[in-house]
Amino acid sequence: MKDQQRLSDFKAMSEDQLNDELLKLKKEQFNLRFQRATGQLENTSRVRIVRRDVARIKTVAAQKKRAGAKK
């Protein structure tokens, strides 16, 4: 349910907003990996959620890019 909501949120974003969100998630992903390596990571499920959100954003961005190229 929440995945569908995030996907629709990503689809509503412009390409610049998607790039900004992707950059933010990449930074969070780096910080989570660093926390896991040092043994400070408390919410281990967040790693999976962030990884999947990155993939969702990349997919939506590619779809928008293809749709823009067809016009």
Rank of each mutant, 00 (worst) to 15 (best):
F30S: 12
T59V: 10
V47T: 13
A55I: 04
S8F: 12
E15A: 00
K11T: 06
K11P: 13
I49E: 07
K27W: 09
K65L: 07
V50H: 04
R48H: 10
N31F: 10
R33W: 02
K26E: 12
V60L: 00
A12F: 10
S45D: 13
E21D: 10
K58L: 01
R48K: 09
L22Q: 13
S45Y: 06
R6F: 03
L25H: 04
R51M: 12
L25W: 00
R56D: 06
M1V: 14
F34H: 14
N43W: 09
N43A: 12
G68E: 10
Q40R: 06
N31T: 00
F34S: 15
T44E: 12
R46F: 05
N31S: 11
M13K: 02
K24L: 08
R46D: 02
I57M: 02
R48L: 02
V54P: 06
G39R: 00
D16W: 08
Q35C: 04
R51E: 09
V60K: 07
L23R: 09
L25I: 03
D16V: 14
R52I: 09
E15N: 04
K71P: 00
Q63G: 10
K65I: 00
L32D: 11
F34D: 15
K2E: 15
V60P: 02
R33F: 08
E21I: 07
K26R: 05
E28P: 08
K70R: 01
A55T: 08
K27E: 10
R48S: 11
T59E: 01
L18D: 00
N31P: 06
R33L: 03
G39I: 13
M13F: 03
R48I: 11
Q5L: 15
L32R: 11
L18I: 06
F10P: 10
E28Q: 08
G68P: 02
M13I: 12
A69G: 11
Q4D: 15
R33P: 11
L32K: 04
V50W: 06
D53K: 07
F30L: 03
D53G: 02
V47R: 12
A55S: 02
K65E: 13
I57E: 08
S14R: 01
Q40H: 01
E15F: 11
L32S: 05
Q29H: 11
Q35R: 04
F10D: 11
R6N: 13
V47L: 01
G68M: 02
M1N: 15
A37P: 14
R48V: 08
F30P: 04
F30D: 13
T44V: 13
Q40G: 03
T44Y: 09
A61E: 12
D9E: 15
F34T: 14
R51G: 08
Q29P: 09
D16K: 15
F10C: 06
G39E: 07
S14H: 10
R46G: 07
L23S: 11
R51W: 11
L23F: 14
K11N: 14
L32Q: 10
A37W: 15
R66V: 00
E42I: 01
R33H: 00
L23A: 14
F34Q: 15
K58C: 02
Q29M: 05
K24S: 00
K27H: 13
D3P: 00
S14V: 06
V54R: 07
L22A: 04
E15R: 03
Q4G: 14
K24D: 05
A62F: 08
M1I: 14
